[in-house]
């Protein structure tokens, strides 16, 4: 399972970099969405995939019986998803405003501050 996930994460990173290198603003944002998903899956995978062992302690015991899945990575991912949600909402507003002001969807036409 880990190797499949590793390939998925790699493919997501590759796809997001490809999208971010395109000239269109909308594709840039799609790239950013893919990027944050790729990172979340990466955390999920490297912290160990455990099936069907919820970290719940049965009544009268101190530890869950027979091993348990680590809940912390899921908390991290949840936090990262929330942050990603906020950032992406901002990014969408930004590209909309940028499109209105510049009148172009083309990043190559946005060079006036570079010179």
């Amino acid at each position: 399972m880990e190797s499949v996930m590793a390939v998925v994460v790699g493919a997501l990173f590759a796809a997001s970099v490809y999208m971010m290198l395109r000239r269109s603003l909308v594709k840039l944002v799609i790239g950013l969405i893919l990027l944050s998903n790729a990172a979340n899956l990466l955390i999920f995978t490297v912290s160990g995939l455990t099936r069907g062992k919820p970290p719940l302690i049965p009544e009268g015991m101190d530890l869950p019986a027979g091993g348990w899945a680590d809940p912390l990575p899921q908390a991290l991912i949840l936090t990262a998803i929330v942050i990603g949600f906020g950032v992406l909402a901002f990014a969408v507003v930004l590209i909309r405003r940028a499109y209105e002001v510049v009148g172009e969807d083309d990043l190559d036409k946005m060079r006036s501050t570079d010179l």
Partner: peptide
């Protein structure tokens, strides 16, 4: 969320 959605809708 409503700040952003309303801003987009009003634009």
């Amino acid at each position: 969320v409503m700040t952003i959605v309303l801003a987009l809708a009003e634009a």
